[in-house]
Design a protein around this nucleic acid. Structure first.
Length: 385
RNA sequence: GCGGUUACGAGUUAGAG
């Protein structure tokens, strides 16, 4: 049995979920049961790779065999379906668990609420919260956080705050997530005063301080062109012993780039390295965008080379940014070249890429090329939106 | 006992016509 576990584990680690799946089925058919942790990562892995039906199949077989399936495995399945937007199917799975007399715990309810909130079905999410309470499963802080996030993302801060109050009436204590959700919600609608009210509350409690809240505030200032304010917060976080992350830096780089301060932005890459942080693809893409917006396309292009020298893989957005840079300069040659290059690297263009390419070609009167492009696009299963 | 659920960063679309 140890060998089985090791084999499956190794297959999962190498992301060979198909093989792990087949191997597990084979084992289960011989009534050998891999351990819980492995089954969970297998279910999670299958779902992340869009193999939901395999995950479900495995789950069903375990049940049919009368093998124990703990809530962690079930919740991995429910989460997998919810993350892919298949909340209805997730609900069916849960319903079957209920029918089978299985106790649904808060993790699973929360996973369902997560799915509902992702689809902006906030009222349904709230109903599930009531339902769980009715079944004697107390909504926990995660339940409240999920719903607060749902409302915050829709600018419905009144409702988010009602939940903030409600959870405390229920004896729950807002945690670091709660704070950043509320602060982020106010930032989204530019209610900075309100955001700062909650931020000060965190500071006063001298608790829950973490890079995420700072990142939210820094990004908000950067988005509003208030880079100086953003840097003040960077100092503030450091002085309180909170280390910046690559998210912090990418926000700052983006903010500086938007202001045309690309040199300062580029210096931040070195500053990161001095702090032991590796600049990632987002930091580079933000900087490349900054150069492109200034028309300094060669600088942008050499950053792409720098990335490959450092083994930082460019992605769809990186290429789209560069292509847009060339399009704006009317450089059709390089636009084509980059498009070919991204295809040859297996980086998939998306609807934004095609949108930009279309405009670029049209601007230069390359009507036929647009038609070719559109054929290519539909072959690849991308639709303009 | 251990494990499963929640927060933050980059790309097209300002205005006029």
């Amino acid at each position: 049995l140890g060998t089985i576990n090791t084999t499956i584990s190794s297959l999962c680690k190498r992301s060979l979920f198909d093989s792990a799946f087949k191997f597990t089925l084979l084992m289960v058919s011989k009534n050998l049961r891999p351990n819980d942790g492995l089954l969970m990562s297998l279910v999670t892995g299958l779902c992340r790779n869009k193999k939901h039906s395999e995950a479900l199949q495995l789950y069903n077989i375990l049940l049919d065999k009368g093998l124990t399936v703990n809530n962690a495995i079930s919740s991995a399945l429910v989460v997998g379906f919810c993350e892919a937007g298949m909340v209805q199917k997730a609900k069916l799975i849960v319903q079957r668990m209920l029918d089978g007399g299985v106790k649904i715990d808060a993790f699973i309810y929360n996973a369902l609420i997560y799915g509902c909130c992702k689809q902006e079905k906030l009222e349904v999410g709230c109903k599930i919260k009531e339902e769980m309470a009715g079944k004697g499963v107390h909504p926990d802080i995660v339940t409240f956080n999920l719903l607060m996030l749902g409302f915050s993302n829709n600018g419905r801060m009144d409702e988010a705050l009602m939940l903030w109050n409600e959870c405390q009436r229920n004896g729950l204590v807002p945690d670091a997530y709660s704070f950043s959700i509320i602060i982020g919600g106010f930032c989204n609608i530019e209610k900075i005063k309100e955001a700062m009210y909650f931020f000060d509350m965190m500071i006063q409690q001298n608790n829950h301080l973490n890079p995420v809240v700072y990142n939210i505030l820094i990004r908000t200032h950067c988005r509003n062109g208030k880079v100086l304010e953003a840097f003040k917060l960077l100092n503030d976080m450091r002085s309180r012993g909170v280390s910046p992350t690559s998210v912090t830096y990418s926000s700052l780089i983006h903010g500086l780039g938007k202001n045309g301060q690309v040199d300062e932005a580029e210096n931040l890459l070195d500053e990161m390295r001095k702090e032991g942080l590796q600049p990632d693809v987002v930091c580079y893409t933000a900087l490349i965008d900054g150069y492109c917006k200034l028309g300094q396309i060669n600088e942008a292009r050499s950053l792409l080379q720098e990335m490959s020298a450092l083994n930082i893989q460019p992605n769809t957005i990186t290429y789209t940014v560069l292509i847009f840079g060339y399009c704006k300069l009317g450089n059709i040659e390089e636009t084509r070249r980059l498009y070919e290059e991204m295809l040859s690297k297996g980086i998939a263009p998306d609807s934004w890429t095609y949108n930009i390419l279309t405009h670029g070609f049209l601007k230069e009167g390359k009507l036929e090329e647009v038609f070719n492009l559109w054929d290519h696009m539909s072959e690849r299963g991308v639709a303009l939106d």
